[in-house]
């Protein structure tokens, strides 16, 4: 019995890391969007399109790595499209994001129908998957090795992304400018920075991250695209960003929370507990966490009147 539980724990921890990969890409994409002062609601649609582009690209270009690049390029292109709609055409960002999500839902099916003749999935195409990595040394450590080694290469990329983003946002020139332009565009403009350029940099990075997350779904998580396969992961990214207070470490923790309960629901399903109730838990926790956090922040702010000088317009 004792050994049974420990096996469960190892496979559970392994599963947690596996399901965390696309979520982490999503929440990091949302983090970059938010830091750049851009609404992140389109992440869901961009990821879905990238999942399709990844599988289709791998099949058309002859390999999963090509597919991955194609997926990332798609992510960047869509992110720029969203930027153009909201920054240049001045479309309402929430509505434009909803539009992109609707577009992704339909267009992915439209395209795979032309590629495969079916609307459900691309299983009939052989697109392959990205390799799993056996981490030297780490793999030989008992228990830990079995949990941490042997994941898909993108899983390790996703974890490195967290550190890389922290470095980028807080240590580099472009990161500083991106944060400034996102938080107070007038201030950035007043020192001669091009806010548009900073925003497009954010759009580029976030689009590429969403592309990685989407492509992982169809080239790592499984080996094909199926319709609506991102299933709200982009929205979870939004929530994780919000719960993680907008710092990479915090967002990582919030993402981990989602991953744990996602993996747990699979485990419990095997123990024939109702999986639906487990599946709804992380969403419920998020709502409660956001409510509590927002209330706390609002209380702190509302201790007195808004004493800020107000803009007098002509």
């Amino acid at each position: 019995m004792a050994s049974g539980i420990s096996i469960d724990f190892v496979s559970f921890a392994f599963a947690t890391i596996r399901v965390m990969t696309p979520l982490l890409f999503a929440s990091m994409a949302c983090l970059v969007y938010t830091k750049g002062g851009i609404d992140s609601i389109a992440t869901e649609g961009i990821m879905l399109m990238c999942a399709m582009a990844g599988a289709a690209g791998a099949w058309l270009l002859g390999g999963p790595f090509q597919g991955l690049l194609f997926g990332m390029a798609t992510g960047v292109a869509l992110s720029f499209l969203f930027g153009y709609a909201t920054l240049s055409l001045k479309a309402n960002p929430v509505l434009a994001g909803i539009a992109l999500n609707i577009l992704a839902g339909g267009l992915t099916i439209f395209v795979i129908y032309y590629l495969t003749g079916e609307k459900g999935s691309t299983q009939s195409l052989s697109s392959g998957t990205l390799p799993n990595v056996r981490v030297p040394l780490l793999a030989d450590v008992p228990v830990l090795g079995r949990i941490l080694s042997g994941h898909n290469v993108l899983t390790y990329v996703s974890l490195l992304t967290v550190a890389a983003l922290h470095f980028f946002l807080y240590k580099t020139r472009s990161g500083l400018r991106l944060r400034a332009a996102g938080e107070n565009p007038q201030a950035a403009e007043s020192v001669g920075l091009s806010v548009t350029r900073c925003k497009y940099l954010a759009l580029f990075i976030a689009g590429a991250l969403a592309g990685l997350g989407g492509a992982f779904m169809s080239l790592g998580y499984v080996s094909f695209f199926s319709k609506n396969m991102t299933a709200g992961r982009g929205f979870i990214g939004m929530a994780a960003e919000s719960m993680g207070h907008g710092v990479p470490g915090g967002v990582l923790l919030a993402t981990l929370l989602f991953s744990v309960s996602d993996a747990l629901s699979v485990q419990l399903q095997m123990m024939s507990l109702p999986p639906e109730l487990m599946q709804l838990m992380p969403y419920l926790v998020t709502i409660v966490a956001i409510a509590v956090y927002s209330r706390h922040r609002a209380r702190r702010r509302a201790a007195g009147p808004a004493a800020d000088p107000k803009e007098v317009k002509p």
């Binding site: 240590k171 500083l176 201030a187 950035a188």
Partner: peptide, 27 residues
């Protein structure tokens, strides 16, 4: 009149914004 400052950044970061001295890619 309404200060053009980024609240969450430090004073020196606000001052050098746009003219950051760098070592490689790092400020």
């Amino acid at each position: 009149q309404h200060f053009m400052l980024v609240d969450s950044l430090r004073v020196y970061e606000n001052i050098i914004l746009g003219l950051e001295p760098v070592k490689g890619p790092v400020i």
